[in-house]
Design a protein around this nucleic acid. Structure first.
Lengths: 253, 253
DNA sequence: TACCAAAATTAACCTGCGTTATCACGAGTA
DNA sequence: TACTCGTGATAACGCAGGTTAATTTTGGTA
């Protein structure tokens, strides 16, 4: 029950029952964290990773004036800092955004699981690479979109990710973020995010009120943000083929 | 000789002789590519990865008007699209920037190496995560720095990476990029990049003439771009500890 | 040497977003 | 009821960087 959302919609990379059970039994602790707390600092040596069961968390880099740039946002079902396992040290901070329930998995236990079930390794690797693919989409967003486009892109991406997690119906989802958070994600100021939200509202693209996001026509919002979900590597509902990772065996093709 | 630069400066992740030899003997082809050619398109199914032996290559995402945002740049010694192995399909294009010499490694051969030498897997995983860490630094650059800061950050990062590859002496390096490329990296227009270069020149921070970058005082340039190389995960010359990945054995700590 | 194409440079103008400041609103709580 | 405090909303003003359009420099080559 702890990790049933993890990799659920990634064809060829979904966990087997056995693998999921192994990960879940490696959990050393489940705890609830207060909102807006930094739980991992860049450069500290880590011996465990954090799986997010409920709530939202973020990863960020501070500039010299203490202004944040978010580099990732996480929802229920995400492995927040699985990359800490191969890296050992992170290059960014990790914090809760809302109150969050997390499962802690010690790296020693991860090592044991990989030794016992080698087929899980490429799936974990894959999960960290999805993270990187999202980074790239964020680079595109910051480098090439205007303010309205950036917010439209982010809200579309979030809609897609939350749908995959069963937390959005495609038109409406709860989002525990403030306009300040959107600003730190989109490289804008809060004042300008506010202007953008008004514009999106006036254009009928999106309503964002008291932690609820309403998107009457997701396709229009996506178009405004040049959003295309292929980089999320979800199962393609049109039946497109997505190669599985040929780990530990000869690839069929 | 083909891959002697790969992971050379990453303590605890450097390849053993045996591992490097295995990778090199898995090379199916070595070829020289013309400059400014796209060699991989997003969404195509890949059965091989490309290791860059000489020259520079880039990865980019196009917007709907054909304007590029670079999401990565690669120099000799980089595995350009190792992540294609677990992912199977890329979410971006890959192109040469200068003329480039590359070694092609089929994924089937990679699978065999990992089966024969399981200790290499976490090192390959690590290499793809460094890539992600650089993405994050680029997010910070685009989201939080002004134009001069972005270019200063990029040129400082490049200096650090090329020093590690033995291609910069810390003050001077060859860079086969045009101002247009800097614009696509930094999310600016060429016109403004040109203004920025003049400013950097006037301030004595950096000269950029006919493919050579001169940095009289690297520390000053780094400060202007808020650049700190820790995210590159190089061996810390001050002897700081960097945990190795506890793959396939109990971690010592 | 002259020629050409690609790249760099510069100028004039304009706009999107940052900055600063103030005000409004709702949820707690006393 | 009033008094916070956190968040959202707006307005006025300025500037960093975009846009458009020449012009100059550079490197290659005939």
């Amino acid at each position: 029950m702890i990790m049933e959302r993890f990799l659920r919609n990634n064809r060829g990379h979904a966990l087997t029952q056995e693998e999921r059970k192994a990960l879940e039994s490696a959990v050393s602790e489940i705890k609830t964290l207060a909102p807006r707390k930094t739980i991992v600092r860049a450069r500290e040596i880590l011996h465990q990773s954090t799986f997010l069961m409920e709530g939202t968390m973020s990863r960020y880099i501070d500039d010299t004036n203490g202004v944040r740039q978010l580099v990732a946002i996480h929802f229920a079902g995400d492995f927040v800092d699985l990359h800490a396992y191969p890296l050992g040290i992170l290059d960014h901070d990790v914090a809760t955004t809302t109150e969050a329930t997390v499962a802690i998995i010690p790296h020693a236990a991860l090592g044991k699981i990989i030794r016992d079930l080698p087929q899980i390794a490429p799936k974990l690797w894959f999960a960290t690479l999805i993270d990187a693919a999202i980074h790239r989409a964020w680079l595109f967003r910051l480098g090439r979109l205007d303010a309205v486009g950036r917010v439209a892109h982010f809200l579309s991406e979030t809609n897609a990710r939350l749908m995959s997690a069963g937390l959005s119906n495609g038109h409406r989802y709860a989002l525990g973020l403030r306009q300040t958070d959107l600003a730190e994600i989109c490289g804008l100021t809060t004042v300008h995010v506010n202007r953008v939200m008004r514009k999106l509202r006036e254009d009928g693209l999106c309503e964002f009120r008291s932690s609820w996001v309403d998107i009457p026509e997701p396709a229009r919002l996506a178009a405004r943000g040049q959003f295309d979900p292929h980089y999320l590597y979800f199962v393609d509902e049109r039946g497109g083929s997505q190669r599985t990772c040929p780990w530990g065996r000869e690839p069929a093709d």
